[in-house]
Nucleic acid binder design. Structure first.
Lengths: 386, 386
DNA sequence: CTATTTAATTTCACCAGTAGATTAATTAGA
DNA sequence: TCTAATTAATCTACTGGTGAAATTAAATAG
């Protein structure tokens, strides 16, 4: 992408103005100019451009700052842009329509099983989208694209799912097929990465500019947002901490190495460990055992929580973020562990000089994080091109 | 800094053109235009500007691409810009004059002891700089700034050494004092971070765009270069992996936590562990014991090497770089460990899907890495402002 | 020796952004 | 109530970087 001409500059400025309106609406032109350092003239021009194109509008409201002419306030025309966010995992797909603010306008879902082919899944997604459009009376012209978030390694540029253990997919040209079936632009990205973006844009890390999100659930992963951009690394696998070694003399992992982080904290590992003593089917049962005070359950879960705290320390030491978001099935289902983990962090595991450099927060968007995030990624893509 | 006006755009373009000339000289205007996507007009204008300002010049040489007019080639006037790189550690300071290419024109050093005050050190640095200028007949007008690299947490923006265990300093306004004493612009940065930049610009990671450098010596640390920029994190402590937890039931670290990485692999820890069995003064003695086959020495060092390999895996899992550089006293003094570590990586510790995503290389600049790096950082700063 | 190809420069138009003047709207205080 | 001060938004003239196309320059193939 060119980065050196006036066109790029203009786009950049349009985008900043748009973002500010999005985040701080209602806001006056003057305030935008002050904030960005642009001249009022420029802001005015951009705003009228955006108005003409139907993205924003001047409201009736007026704010007075004491003396002087009242500023007329600009707001998003929030139905101006709608995107579709899709969350794919082993057992189901969730689909939602997302507005510019990241609100879920309406949503649907369908169950799937791990054997389902990509083709079948894509077809089903397209169907549901059609249904939802009719059902919720969505204006088709407003839809700017589809974003899909799923667990796995994804080549975002190419829109290809390189590899997803959870879905059992390999080298699937997901974006292309979706585009063919729906006629909409499609983006595919890793679920944790889009979730992190969503949390930073409108969730619990709002205002942060170095955010790390940790996901503790069926898998273990992390995602890093730098300056509002998802950090992906060279092969799109940045943040794949599941196979970091935390105990070289520890348990064997499926991957053939010993002591991988995920063998201590992901749900399947916890269940299979537990099952050596007593058959436990679900993570709920395991936590129930713990609540009942069963010794081995306490041991397993306490160890997992300790490793989570250690992971926080290690991630913070490397990325030095200002905000760490805890998310994933374990935190969604058992919110009480959040306190336990943060306590462990501050009392035992975080290197003292770093203790005040960041805050630990819980994911705020919960089950909707991925569809909001992937929807917003789709919008980002749209705005970068328009 | 403004990022939205023509001025910024121009600077940006000047910089890109300059960088390309720096890295690929001799090169024709046409080639630069093709590479950057800028119009020939723009490139021509920038080149003549740079020529007037005395940064580059047109050479006699001409390259023919078969048919057509031969292109006149542009080269750096490599004496045009000189900066000073300073490496500070506990026992000494190394000072060198660095040209645009990162060549060391001449260098000097002085010993210091850990008790030396910042003031004394700065004064001594200024003295040596004066001596070197006279001795090597350096053109003062060409000197664009001083860069200092040292171990510790540094507030680069403010030029303040927040904290350096090695030097025993705290909140030292180093950049400001240096500027006062020498009349030159000064930048201070972490030694590993500048070394990493140097390795990427002209060392073993040339051409990489996601580089991680690991330093194994008196301390343990890492540095990350993203898109040619040093990644610093929010409080300038990104990459401080010394206190990541690698064994929650492991040895106590000075920091009060258990099982910090550095307790297994940094030189002081190795020596103090060894001394429990036999008084060992230097790392050379310890390695000699190992070469002699002494059991405890082999154990200690093998364990250290294993943890280094583990560190590589963990760092790669998170940052997903295309290049990992191993550096530091241990690798400089005992180059043979490089092979051992890489072997451990590929046979045991690297998660298989990541094995082909990066290369492990040795630092190429060795003892000069830090002065070159800090000198180049000073130049970067200069070019960003001019 | 001419036609063709490539390089570099020059001319000119375009347009994003700025500064400063102008118009509009509002309030504090005489 | 009226005026001066204040803030917002727009209008106008200008600056300056970039790109397109024409031009000039230099080389080679045949």
């Amino acid at each position: 992408m060119k980065k050196h001409d006036q066109d790029f500059m203009k786009r950049q400025n349009r985008l900043t103005v748009f973002q500010i309106i999005k985040n701080e609406q209602p806001i006056s032109r003057a305030a935008i100019a002050k904030q960005t350092g642009m001249s009022p003239t420029t802001v005015s021009r951009i705003v009228s451009e955006l108005t003409e194109e139907g993205y924003v509008h001047e409201t009736e409201e007026q704010a007075s700052a004491g003396r002087g002419r009242k500023s007329s306030l600009i707001r998003l025309l929030d139905t101006a842009v709608i995107s579709i966010g899709v969350e794919l995992d082993r057992h189901q797909a969730n689909i939602g329509f997302i507005d510019v603010q990241g609100n879920v306008l309406c949503s649907g879902n369908f169950p799937r099983s791990s054997g389902d082919t990509p083709e079948a899944t894509v077809a089903r997604i397209a169907d549901i989208i059609e249904e939802l459009i009719l059902e919720c009376d969505i204006d088709r012209r407003r839809i700017v694209g589809i974003g899909v978030g799923l667990p796995g390694i994804i080549d975002v540029e190419a829109g290809i799912v390189n590899f997803s253990v959870q879905l059992g997919w390999k080298n699937v040209q997901l974006a292309e097929r979706l585009k063919e079936l729906t006629g909409l632009q499609a983006v595919v990205d890793n679920e944790l990465k889009v979730k992190a973006l969503a949390e930073q844009l409108k969730g619990s890390a709002y205002g942060s500019n170095r955010t790390v999100l940790l996901g503790f659930g069926n898998g273990v992963g992390s995602a890093l947002i730098l300056e509002g951009e998802i950090y992906r690394g060279v092969t799109n696998s940045a943040g794949e901490i599941g196979h970091t070694t935390v105990d070289p003399e520890g348990m064997m992992c499926d991957c053939g190495k010993a002591g991988c982080l995920q063998t201590y904290i992901n749900i399947p590992s916890l269940l299979s460990e537990a099952s050596k003593i007593k058959p436990v089917r679900t993570i709920e049962e395991l936590f129930a055992e713990r609540r009942a005070g069963t010794r081995w359950a306490c041991y397993l879960i306490d160890r997992a929580l300790a490793y989570m705290a250690i992971t926080i320390n290690n991630v913070v030491s490397m990325y030095n973020p200002d905000s760490v978001i805890l998310s994933g099935e374990i935190l969604d289902k058992f919110p009480e562990v959040y306190e336990e983990i943060t306590n462990l962090c501050y009392t035992q595991y975080i290197w003292e000089p770093l203790q005040d450099s960041f805050t630990i927060v819980r994911s705020k968007l919960h089950e909707h994080g991925v569809i909001i995030g992937s929807g917003l990624v789709a919008q980002d893509r749209y705005f970068q091109l328009n």
